[in-house]
Design a protein around this nucleic acid. Structure first.
Lengths: 180, 180
DNA sequence: TAAGATTGATCGATCAATCTTG
DNA sequence: CAAGATTGATCGATCAATCTTA
């Protein structure tokens, strides 16, 4: 049922063997790379993948401060998830929250001194790891090819973040199948 | 701290602007693609990404049966996670468990008739979605380039599944930083 | 009221025991 | 004992309300 099986089933358009190979490779990478980076960060700094990028994003901002809604976009995260996450980071003293002075509807997350210190401690190791993991194995040409392919996939699918596809799809013969 | 900031910090070797771009693209894809596929499967069949591949893997086996430990390798999953997952699938009647007759140490997961039916119902839509998401935007050349790049990354890093990097790394200046 | 944010409930993933079989 | 598997506890992600401010 993964595509390489015999053809006695109600197949629509299966993947070609070649596509199948590409698919397996991509599938593996999708599982493996985030896990590797998460593991590195967790071991070396006690931060999760996303927590790191939240702190990093804040550190790139003028006052080390950003509205949660903007942060959510940057982190490809939902607001709810971010709110929970920032609450945890706040409990750990890495970030504090403050209502936006110019518009009370917004909440800003602000990097604390401690949070900045932890980030500075974590960053070199992480960058080094990413370099070894992703860039060292590839030539410049291969890097460009990788980026190009991923970009095309993204833009062909509307360059969406999360919260797309939220209740869509009626074009496949799936209809009655939500057993949950 | 993501690489494009001013250079007044204790940097090791930052990424070049070009690498930075590749990195952002990859980062986005790593977050976006699994989410999109998970969402499609969830909506159309009530199965998670991994559940689907577990069922699909079973359906490719002789007796629609596989040892959990083998399944774990195939699914890039840990045994513990798989055990919980199979327990849930069993409760839903999609799979049943049976001690391996030839060696009582193993447990086999076996696709039920109902499980097979659900898989057959889910497969066409999923394959179609993957095709549109991944393959339609790319030429054959670009597909090969993508696969090539990801393969190089994988093999350069030892072609590992999960459960690598479990307590390693002492080469970065991270030492005292596990706040958990 | 609508957008931003928070909260509580639920579910799955992870980790560290523990159990079982050869 | 070692490998395979299970279990319970904990933590994070997700979803559906709910609250707040302009």
């Amino acid at each position: 049922m993964t595509g390489r099986s015999r053809s006695t089933k109600p197949e629509p358009r299966w993947l070609t063997p070649d596509e199948m190979e590409t698919w397996r490779t991509l599938h593996l990478a999708l599982a493996t790379l985030p896990a590797a980076m998460a593991s590195q960060l967790q071991c070396d700094s006690g931060l999760s993948f996303i927590e790191y990028y939240v702190l990093a994003s804040l550190s790139d901002q003028p006052e080390h401060s950003m509205r949660l809604s903007d942060l959510a976009v940057l982190a490809n995260s939902e607001l709810s998830r971010l709110s929970h996450m920032v609450a945890r980071l706040e409990r750990r003293g890495l970030v504090r929250r403050q209502t936006d002075r110019t518009d009370g509807r917004f909440t800003c997350a602000i990097l604390t001194v401690k949070g900045y210190r932890e980030l500075v401690r974590a960053a070199p190791g992480h960058v080094e790891y990413v370099r070894r993991l992703i860039f060292d194995p590839l030539s410049k040409t291969e890097q460009r090819a990788l980026r190009n392919a991923l970009r095309k996939i993204q833009s062909h699918n509307g360059g969406q973040g999360p919260a797309s596809r939220t209740r869509a799809r009626s074009d496949t013969q799936a209809g009655a199948a939500s057993s949950r």
